[in-house]
Write a protein that binds this DNA or RNA. Structure first.
Lengths: 203, 203, 203, 203
DNA sequence: AATGAATGAGCATTCATTCAT
DNA sequence: TATGAATGAATGCTCATTCAT
């Protein structure tokens, strides 16, 4: 009842919520969102089925929350990392590095992001409207800033270039997930940036 | 008359299968694969529920068949169009044009391709292994040929560049689908190629 | 159109009906009545699904007809064989022989009789009311006649003895069907009669 | 209170299972196993459809469990009753009495045993192999013991006599079930034993 | 008579969610 | 807070039967 007790209680709550979230990532990645049962997630989290509903509105909300939290961290890290970089090319490179290292560090999370989140137009629409747009916006602004400084060509719409860049990174992750071979994802960042910035054409 | 009748009968069969396939694209695009009922597809196709099972093994098989058929057409058109082009840059441009015009011409099909087909690791693995790999291979070879002719830089792995290019196109389509604004997709081909080949860097 | 043609046509019809009946026995015995599809029977008979309905009202009617025909033959043979026998014990023995040799000669038919026909109270009630009662009646009369001639004891109700006898024979057949060992069924007739008539008690 | 509560909870579980089992007997007897819907059984038991699956694997498992439990009780009672009887003829009589009184006391259970359990070769094979064989074995041993003591004739195979006896009893039950007249079943025990032991022949 | 494509009613089972304890 | 037994709506698929040819 004292502060300690409340603290414990609070942590207890957080722990359970956290456990369910992690279990969700693991289970959804392994079996697919639609094929996963709430009972699977609860079992994996070590809680009773009903307990899930004390922390989440339902199955959808778990997926939602996985996305929200990861995306928030993702964006926060991106912003933080970009702050201290001045060179637009280095900024672009940093985005690629964070993107690929983040997802490359947690395969299950990557699977949920690349595969499960896209399994429904509904989800896509909900998500794209919110956090996803924010992420794309960061890339766009970086490119736009580069254009203003004369580092990037100006005859290209920043939005389009941002989408291309995101699409290229995204494909790296998807291929990595589906690949039967195990290889580190992050090192691809340099390659992607090289082509994106320098172009495919021989000089 | 006998031949005509048989022909008609044969067409009748094709018509039903075709109708179910079209209905599948429409329904899956509108409600999502997992949220679509076989009864929805049957109703949209104007046949009885049971009739679906005369032409397809089950719900999965409809999705499978949509992909198989569209992908086959897709690849065939790509190959055909590339044959008569000699310039690697023009070839790359043609791929982008075919890709975007094809999907841009059939929004529902595009939705199924971009969203529904990715809703399950199982599908992704099955599909990527087969026809998808073939498509990526076409892009890769085109790039590789360009490298040999000195048109494309050689310090980039063709596979990686192919994935980047595919990812960029793919993202154009996904954004187009999710966008609330209606705009033509194909014109983006030129822009994408411009960046992909020329690079983002100012000259 | 001539007599020959009509004859052929007639035979054609009979042949199909016959083929379906035989197919029914085979299929029902192998898979069970409820697990058998009309299409299975049709395929086994070498006719189209729809053709079955030209000769039978439906699936039930096939089972019905199998029973009716076999039972009629059964009873006819029983009556024929009994006519020329005078000794009540020999008559009882003859019934056992016919019963066991008939069913022992056609395992599939026996399976349908012993197992499939009993799978529904409805069938049992329908059947018992009709032909089955007639069969039991033959046994009963034979016993009753034996009692009147002083060969069989009179302190036993003929109906009860008839049921016992039928039950004993029936159990022989059921065990024979379910047995994993292959053995001839008919020879058991003598044994059954020995016990039924002589009793189990040592003299 | 804790113990009581747990006890109650435990009983609650048993009660539901028990209720479903009873409902199964009633419904299967009334409509036939294949014509009964799980929903019918659930409704009769006063539980939701899904609850059935908390206690049974499926529809088949209900039938299976009905048989298992009843057969176990049946055999246990048989063994218990036989223990204190020395005279082989009295033992045989006791088996008949238990058999007929048990089934005669629960018409619905009798219907399931006599009719529904036989509706599938699959069930018959599964069941006959297990508990049914055990029951027959009890009868066989009783007869064999009687032979050794010189009470029963030795020129008859005990297995065959056991089957005959079982078949005779079985037929009594089947006829009782199908009969439109209501009459007590147990009294037939004496009659059956009289014929089985003494034989039908006049002395 | 024969066909077999088409029908559509029927049902076992699953599983997200609730709620009494 | 936490539980997990109970719920009951939801649905893919089967198959007996029909009927246009």
């Amino acid at each position: 009842m004292a502060r300690a007790a409340r603290q414990t209680a609070k942590n207890g709550v957080s722990d359970k919520r956290e456990a369910i979230l992690r279990a969700g990532i693991k289970v959804f990645a392994a079996k697919g969102f639609f094929n996963s049962k709430v009972a699977d997630v609860a079992a994996e989290a070590g809680v009773a089925d009903g307990t899930v509903y004390l922390y989440f509105k339902g199955k959808d909300d778990i997926l939602h929350s996985i996305f929200d939290r990861a995306m928030a961290e993702f964006i926060a890290e991106g912003r933080r990392e970009l702050e201290n970089i001045d060179d637009p090319v280095r900024q672009i490179a940093k985005i690629a590095e964070v993107h690929l290292s983040r997802l490359g560090a947690d395969r299950a999370l990557a699977v949920v992001f690349q595969i499960e989140l896209r399994g429904s137009t509904k989800f896509m629409e909900e998500f794209s409207a919110a956090a996803f747009a924010e992420y794309l916006e960061i890339i766009r602004k970086t490119i736009e800033a580069g254009q203003k400084r004369g580092v990037f060509r100006s005859d290209v719409k920043p939005v389009l270039a941002a989408k291309m860049f995101y699409g290229a990174l995204d494909e790296m992750v998807t291929n990595w997930i589906l690949s039967k071979k195990a290889y580190p994802l992050e090192p691809l960042a340099g390659e992607v940036v090289k082509v994106f910035v320098g172009g495919l054409k021989a000089q």
